[in-house]
Simulated scan of single mutants.
Amino acid sequence: MIAVFLVCLLSWCRSSAVATALPPPQDLTMVAINTNYTLRWNYKQSAALPNQVTFTTEFISKYMLTIKKKPPVWKPACKESPEHSCELTSFDLYYFSIYKLRVRASVNGNHSAWAFKEFCPDKDTGIGPPSSVKLTLAGYSLEVSIVDPLTSTNSSMKDYMADLSYNICYWERHEDEEALIMETISTNSNVVALSGLKPLTWYCVRVQSYTKYYNRSSSFTSPLCMKNDGHAPCWQILLIFMAFLVIVVPLVVLLAVGSFRCSRFWKSVFHPELPSFLIESRRDSTGGRSPQLITMSIESERLCDNMTVCPKSSVLETLSLLKESAAPPLGLNPDSRSLKVLHICF
Rank of each mutant, 00 (worst) to 15 (best):
M161T: 02
V315Y: 15
A193D: 15
S290G: 12
E80K: 01
Q45E: 13
V269A: 09
T56S: 13
P129T: 08
V341A: 10
P24W: 10
P71Q: 04
P71K: 06
M157S: 01
S338W: 05
Y140P: 01
C204N: 08
L93M: 15
S290H: 09
C345K: 07
V252W: 03
Q208C: 03
G230T: 05
I294Y: 09
P275Q: 11
N110F: 09
R216V: 08
V53E: 01
T29F: 09
P233N: 01
T29P: 03
S106Q: 08
P129S: 13
G331W: 00
P121C: 02
P24L: 15
F265Q: 06
T184S: 10
F220H: 04
E317S: 14
R14F: 15
T56V: 05
T295C: 10
V191H: 07
R40K: 10
S132F: 12
S219Y: 13
I247E: 04
V53I: 14
G258I: 09
A17K: 12
R173P: 03
F96S: 07
G126W: 09
G258L: 14
F5H: 01
S281H: 05
F116N: 03
C13E: 14
S81F: 02
D92Y: 12
K68V: 11
G331Y: 02
S281V: 01
